[in-house]
């Protein structure tokens, strides 16, 4: 099993519903977030391109946060999901520095926190909160090891990219173009 998330940049309007849904689902403390929206504008008026997209932990196959964690709190779990075991985390912040996506933050209680692909919802057969709420339906989630899954099919048929591929992290959040 290899979990992956796909986000269709042609449909994302950057409304940030995914951010709010994550906060209420995962009790993310006020002032912090596990996912966020970015905007990129290219060109000069009126020849312009605008890309809006939702970003989060990329659950990398080759995760620098896991490699640099001195206690093993950051680890790879079922389906390639990167998790942090809070009571093994000493809050040293090495993982925060190592992440090329700036996807981690230190929780007020001391441990490091980030997107879990709503691992607790997956166990119940539900989609991650952000995917299930998105009003544009621009987010997809599934198993890349299954060639018939919606995510596998979409990656086969659509142009796509990952963020900072040059970092060699093999991200598992894909952006459809």
């Amino acid at each position: 099993m290899r979990y992956a998330m796909l986000i269709d940049t042609l449909k994302c309007v950057g409304c940030s519903d995914c951010v709010v849904a994550c906060q209420t689902e995962n009790d993310v403390p006020m002032g912090y977030c596990r996912d966020w929206i970015t905007e990129v504008v290219n060109g000069q008026y009126p020849n312009l391109d605008l890309e809006l997209k939702s970003e989060r932990c990329n659950h990398c196959d080759n995760a620098p946060c896991v490699r640099c964690c001195p206690t093993g709190a950051s680890h790879k779990s079922t389906g390639g999901i990167i998790l942090v075991t809070a009571n093994e985390c000493i809050g040293c912040g090495a993982c925060i520095e190592s992440c090329p996506y700036d996807a981690r933050y230190q929780h007020p209680e001391g441990y490091v926190d980030k997107c879990t692909f709503c691992h607790h919802r997956l166990e119940k057969g539900q989609l991650p909160a952000c995917v299930s709420v998105c009003p544009t339906n621009c987010m997809y989630f599934g198993d890349l090891d299954n060639p018939n899954s919606e995510v596998s099919q979409l990656l086969n048929n659509r142009k796509h990219k990952t963020l900072a591929p040059e970092a060699g992290t093999k991200p598992q959040v894909y952006y459809l173009l």
Partner: peptide, 13 residues
């Protein structure tokens, strides 16, 4: 290229 983070509190983080 202009790139900015919108609608998030990563900066406050």
């Amino acid at each position: 290229m202009l790139s900015i983070i919108l609608y998030s509190n990563m900066n406050t983080t």
